[in-house]
Design a protein around this nucleic acid. Sequence first.
DNA 1: TGCCATT
Length: 392
Amino acid sequence: MAVRLCDVATLLRSGSWAAEPWTGQVIAAMETQLSNGPTCNNTTNGPSNSNTGTNNCSSPVDSNTMPEDSKTNLIVNYLPQNMTQEELKSLFGSIGEIESCKLVRDKITGQSLGYGFVNYVDPKDAEKAINTLNGLRLQTKTIKVSYARPSSASIRDANLYVSGLPKTMSQKELEQLFTQYGRIITSRILVDQVTGVSRGVGFIRFDKRVEAEEAIKGLNGQKPPGATEPITVKFANNPSQKTNQAILSQLYQSPNRRYPGPLHHQAQRLRLDNLLNMAYGVKRFSPMTIDGMTSLAGINIPGHAGTGWCIFVYNLAPDADESILWQMFGPFGAVTNVKVIRDFNTNKCKGFGFVTMTNYDEAAMAIASLNGYRLGDRVLQVSFKTNKTHKA
DNA sequence: TGCCATT
């Protein structure tokens, strides 16, 4: 690849994004992600795991204690619900050659469990994937990319449910309470969605099940320092083990449905139409009232019927790469493919590329938001791909 | 009792 993602992030951070009021939120989310880079906001994010040989925290390699650890196999957590295995492969394939890739699904419903594995051919690509894709925002999620621990029964079912916590207890304090029992993989305190106040309920995932067992013995029914009530600590329900009712309700949900209700959806549509009016200065009928790709002839032409909406991105720099396209379009929704068109001899970008997005709304939002944006010293032109890529 | 961490 011509440019590493961190270089691109630096480029973006240099203040070239001229956010407009109606795209402020989305761009702000992107800027946050880009300027933060690979985040370490989770307990043991990615390569900070002690069982990983190479990492970005410069820990020495200890091949004696963890000789079996793979340096090519990654686990990817917090994937958007709708992301497919093919999209996962496409995203991580932009870094380097993939040996294998698996999205983990519920055995009964087939629904994504929100995580997957990517095994690279070259350990350097695995390391690069952690450094460039960990912390990437995709839709409402911030994905986590880290080395997969060797699969073993001892690391399964190590997640604890904790209730009765003081409402003032922070995630850090929760970890401080549990860390004496083992290595914490993740921790979380649930908060009220409206007020943001702690619900007094949390989760602690340990590296090993035996560590979780010891924590239950040591902390269940105990009062944390300063607390007036004892806490309850027990094994968390396995989220894939659902009641029949939950399974049924899942089966009746369209896999592509993302908005919670018709009112929200309507609001989304109105907002989208306003954006498109601003972007194009034209009125437009609602394509979502008609299923399929054929209803939009004359407005746009998707790259391939049935595979999504192809977007043309023009005025990319010679050293642009696939990563920047993932970074720019990923926050808007499901991206199935990105492609930078390069000169055969120089391997430099010829100034344009393509992005394929699954859902019309998200593609249109991305276009309305990204068309006209300044990337470095260039103003991007972003539109649905047409038969002829140049304007008259 | 979950911004779904072991194929």
